[in-house]
Amino acid sequence: MRVLLALGGNAMTNAEGRARVEDQVAAAGVAMEAVADLIAEGFDVVVTHGNGPQVGNLLVKNEVAAAVVPPVPLDWCGAQTQATLGFVLMNALEASLARRHLDRRTATVVTRARVAADDEGFRTPSKPIGRFLPADEAHLLVEHGETWQDRGEKGWRRVVASPEPLEILDAPAVRALVEAGFVVVANGGGGIPVVRAEDGSVHGVEAVIDKDLGAALLAETVEAEVLVIGTDVSHAVLRFGQPDAENVETVTVSELRALAAEGHFASGSMGPKVEAACRFVEAGGSRAVITDLPNLVAAVTSPPGQGVGTLVVPD
């Protein structure tokens, strides 16, 4: 059975959200222990990941150096963090596999995701990224072509497009490596956003793709049977934060979509994960699971309906 595991970007930081090198290496070690356990159980695993904290670090470097060197564009930031996190995850996974005396090769594919040049997000950028800055520092970055908005007392913040991923351009390479026995890390951060020109060439664009929606598309494209969305809670939750909060256990796609329509899942956190799970199962996946790392192996290996986490199944 092939499993696509989507790790949140915060899975690569420490409990307080710090993303120092040592924090990321330690967090990768924890995450890859769970992946090694799945491999030991006989699963093929493809790993994808968020990169928000890591891109955030690069954006700070852009801002600090903007008066000296031009800022690195977001597509370059995505490529850099895909390669760096892939390197860290491969090292951690190979160490975990060695402790289990398992001989599996690893690979990272720097992966592009095609988006539409006329996506609505490019006309009205709305996804905030990075930190707040005072007006004079933000204006310097505006001169470099970035879009910043005045957010009142907090200062100015950059906004970018978050277009819909349409195609994972490098999925054939991922599939070939998986079929050759590699454990592959791919499509980090939802994929590097690119558009295709009329002559067939592609070029990167300043945008951020939702990593969960990118994970669902990658899972479908590489013919995974199960999509696991790893997050920092064990379940999607109804009435989150309220006294009558309730875990969502086993649920059909139509039931989950109805709950989402009632407003149970925040757009900036659980909402994209729920949408990704629904899309994957609607596209033919056998099931999707939303859970945390400690429950990852049980969520995948237990019989449907008897594991841990929110299990999404076909209608």
Rank of each mutant, 00 (worst) to 15 (best):
E146V: 05
V174S: 09
V183A: 04
T13K: 01
M32H: 05
F240T: 03
G200S: 10
A180N: 10
A298Y: 01
G78A: 15
L166R: 13
V274C: 02
G152L: 02
N247V: 07
D170H: 15
G191Q: 08
P70K: 02
G145V: 14
W76T: 13
G50I: 06
A276S: 08
V115G: 05
A277Q: 11
T84Q: 14
V248D: 06
K61S: 12
V183H: 03
S286M: 13
E246F: 03
A116L: 10
I168D: 03
V297R: 11
A135W: 01
G9C: 03
E198T: 15
V47L: 15
N187P: 07
D23H: 09
L311I: 02
V142N: 00
V251N: 03
A107E: 01
A186P: 10
V208S: 00
A245P: 03
A66L: 10
N91A: 14
S126D: 11
A40S: 11
V183I: 11
A299I: 01
M32K: 02
F240R: 14
V202T: 15
N14P: 06
V21N: 09
F280K: 10
L7E: 02
V110S: 02
F265P: 01
G200K: 14
M32E: 05
V237I: 15
A207I: 11
E153T: 14
S201W: 07
D315E: 09
W148H: 00
V253F: 05
S234L: 06
A95K: 11
V35Y: 08
V55D: 08
L238F: 12
L213P: 06
S269I: 00
V25K: 09
S162L: 10
A6L: 07
L169Q: 05
V228I: 01
L177P: 09
C77Y: 04
L166F: 02
A219N: 13
G263K: 10
L38R: 04
V308Y: 03
A260D: 15
E63S: 07
G145M: 13
T111E: 06
G284K: 04
A117G: 15
F265R: 05
L217V: 07
V3A: 13
L38C: 02
G130I: 00
P163Y: 12
A26K: 10
A28K: 13
H264N: 12
I229P: 02
D232F: 01
P128F: 04
V226K: 12
G309N: 06
I229V: 13
A40V: 00
E153H: 09
L238Y: 08
G121E: 00
